[in-house]
Nucleic acid binder design. Structure first.
Lengths: 338, 338
DNA sequence: TCTGGCACTCGGTACCGATGAGTGCCAGCA
DNA sequence: TGCTGGCACTCATCGGTACCGAGTGCCAGA
């Protein structure tokens, strides 16, 4: 087991390295932190920490830098979440309050997170699966062509064009619209399939095929659009670390362009509290030298989506975690109000 | 005036430099191109070209590289647009044909352009101002709360929440919906304001205020959403030029994150043909070392939006222009079909 | 268990000279 | 007049060497 002082040394190393971006040596450590011991002692501690795999030496005559395992310990046991200053809080609120619709909320959130953390921000649109239906609208565009519009409680709108097997009368369409809405409005997406299953049976035989087609498209939309959309921002911040990993920036950019990768990344977030994935803990190898700090957010108690930031493993974890958590809370509030 | 051979020398310089990414000297030029003259002659020509500002020497004992002015001459007079191979054409078609809705078309187009040109791709969503109305839907969410949904002929859907000054009955709402649609369906956005101007007068005094509010929101949507959305892709390709402008990548990324900058960039595109803006011709200084190749696209004869790529001034102009033009054509076709 | 001292390692920087690609200029030739 | 070969010159690049200093490991002593 590591003694209290050794943990303290690790904490100091992480803090200094995050600040200076340079390997930290024993002498510098004792000068900058009141450890109460001499550099020689710190050296011994460092040797132990290195043996245990928490820190690592780039080359013989250099200082130490934390390993992924070291950051992990730091995050789990040595660091809290730094709360934001009241000025920062007010800034967040001001920034988000001006949003006019869902797209705008997400766009502003991304910008805000990127600015606040000076890293790459990722925000997932509120999930449809956990959302409820606010309204379903059916529009007749042509005799056998219907436009289906789905409106969710988070303000999201999805539309689909449906080509029916036969002409679909205005009255039947109005009928379907009314019945459909009375059944599904306010219900969760997951519950919709069972609720509309028997609907075609109550229609005239002539219309049944068309009704089924429309319903099938509706269900398809529910499933398909569960593949969430994601918004990205602050990629320019990647260049801040240029001198550290100049060639590594490419795979990161590539990974960030893959919606699938991002979705997976956020998908691994636990439901409660801020989740941190450090370096190689990320499955995608393009992100092996980055850390992801993410958290769920939602209008109620339950998370309907996630947001977070991607940055170098050498990042200010307490500050980043604080910012991510705070932004998620405010976004949740905004969603609840609208 | 520049003689024919000097133009030929410039063309050769541009081609070689684009290929090798290294300053090109007189000897290498004569070896790689059948110019029919000796290096010494080429040197004289180069001296003239430099005096005229078409090429430039990084330092005394180095070869020449084209200036922005040189690229401009190359694009205007020396290079054609390279048509795509039939394989590339098929690839484009296959790639775009699978698209299910407008978002998907735009997303696929961005990916395609980025892959094809190996540069950063920018695609503007079809513009609302030049679009026509396919349908306006009004939904009553609460007595004094209406959701307005606008569907365009390009398949885009915009929604707005309207808080009315007073309760708005279902029948009045249905009435408004019917009259509104009969007036504006199939019309251009720009024509809508004058078409609905007198609508409130034909309603009961009680409803007039609400009708006006709804109409005002509709008109607002038309104007507001004229600020186009833009999709970006292939930013990872920027790292390909790392060794050329390692520090310049940052302002480029920053510029690309600003929707406003991108819109302005595409806004400067001429209506007909492929537009090329080289280096300092771009107003935004973050893009001073990049060129933009863009073109309008649309479902009919008229362009409803633009797309293009951003890359280093040292790019394969004929190839890029060919790819951009071809993609725009196919996207236009897809839009026309849907 | 901590500390001071000491020899050692090794990346970073600066300096030097050789190399060679590329140039400008000039005299000669068609 | 325009092209060519020759020649001296420039200067970035590259390899080698030497030095500096931060940082280490280890050991003897408190």
């Amino acid at each position: 087991m590591l003694s209290e002082r050794r943990l303290e040394v690790l904490r100091a190393i992480v803090q200094d390295y995050v600040g200076t971006e340079e390997p930290v040596g024993s002498k510098a450590l004792t000068e900058r932190h009141r450890l109460g011991v001499s550099p020689a002692t710190v050296r011994n501690d460092m040797a132990v920490l290195e043996e245990e795999g928490f820190i690592h030496q780039p080359h013989t005559s250099a200082g130490r830098i934390p390993t992924d395992k070291g950051y992990r310990l730091f995050v789990d046991r040595l660091a809290g979440v730094k709360p934001l200053t009241s000025a920062e809080r007010r800034a967040i609120q001001n920034f988000l309050d001006g949003a006019v619709d869902l797209d705008d909320v997400v766009a502003r959130t991304v910008r805000l997170l990127a600015q606040l953390t000076r890293q790459v921000a990722v925000v997932q649109y509120p999930s449809l699966t956990r959302s409820t239906v606010r309204h379903v609208e059916l529009l007749s565009l042509a005799p056998a062509r219907v436009m289906l519009v789905l409106i969710t409680d988070t303000g999201r709108v999805e539309q689909r064009l449906v080509d029916c097997p036969g002409p679909f009368g205005e009255t039947s369409l109005a009928d379907l619209r009314a019945r459909l809405n009375s059944r599904v409005v306010g219900r969760r997406f997951a519950d919709v399939p069972s609720l509309v299953q028997d609907l075609p049976d109550s229609f005239e035989p002539d219309d049944r095929a068309s009704v089924s087609t429309v319903l099938a498209t509706l269900l398809e939309t529910l499933v398909e659009e569960t593949e969430e959309r994601i918004m990205l921002g602050g990629t320019a911040n990647l260049t801040r670390f240029n001198h550290d990993f100049p060639l590594t920036i490419r795979p990161v950019l590539e990974a960030l362009e893959e919606q699938v990768v991002l979705l997976k990344l956020l998908g691994e977030v636990k439901d409660a509290g801020v989740t941190v994935r450090i370096g190689h803990e990320n499955a995608h190898e393009g992100l092996n030298s980055t850390s992801v700090v993410a958290v769920g957010y939602g209008s109620g108690d339950e998370a309907v989506a996630r947001l977070g930031v991607v940055g170098p493993t050498r990042m200010d974890y307490p500050g980043t975690m604080g910012a991510v958590r705070a932004v998620a809370r405010y976004v949740g509030q905004i969603l609840a109000e609208s």
